[in-house]
Amino acid sequence: MPPRDAVMVADAPARDPRAAGVPKIELVGASKTFYVRGQEVTALQPVDLTVGDQEFVALVGPSGCGKSTTLNLVAGLLRPSRGEVLYDGVPVTALNRRVGYITQKDTLLPWRTAAANIGVALELQSRAVPRAEAQERVAQLIDLVGLRGFENHYPAELSGGMRKRVALARTLIYEPECLLMDEPFGALDAQLKLLMQDQLQQLVHQRRMTVLFVTHDLGEAIALADRVIVFSARPGRIRAVRDVALPRPRDVFKMRFTEGFGRLHEELWDELKDEVAKGVDV
């Protein structure tokens, strides 16, 4: 183990009791500093964070608070400047291919149709499956994300929300044990957003996935997550952590009107609103 960082976050959470074994994801004093033309820019202050196996954790905070940096660290796209990022108890030193990462920007291949984009992972050596099976699974996922009839459209011919769903299906198709999602439903209209949240929730439950979910929508975070973590404005650090003790399976459509939801929302909003105001100044 590396020397623990001197700067510990004051209100860092204690180890999650549910993660009895090794936690799925663990950030230990992990921070990230970029050097832009010799100038230090702190994207993420030292953060301690644990996500247990099959836990659904949501990160909320103002834009530029380091939420995406956190996901990039877990995915192995970035290395922490200090501290450590562990996955299954092992430091992440290369690209972490056991996670499925749905980035904010949909990175679809523009020369492939929706169906071909969804199936691309199954063409790769590391995840190859027989062609017939691949076709079948692509068809299943197209149904799942509601894109029937748009299989042969190119990304340029799809709306922002449809592209997002293709990106989601493309990741779900290889059934990763862990999902990293960066505002996946940001571009969707309110109704579709609810539908997708519901589907995601069921799917995560069915497939026993671990999820680290970044959003700026507090309601979405509470509706989906087992635990909500509020980030402070840049440079990001953890400001508050709350367990969402609402029973599962949840009804994302109706739960917004329950008392428990309202109380939690108010409590977390108190933490968040100062940070959002700070973020606006930047």
């Binding site: 590396p2 050097y35 400047s81 501290g83 450590e84």
Partner: peptide, 15 residues
């Protein structure tokens, strides 16, 4: 990643 001195950024942060 091996132990990293806390007072200095890692090499790769620069390049």
């Amino acid at each position: 990643m091996t132990a990293v001195p806390a007072d200095r950024p890692t090499d790769q942060d620069i390049d």
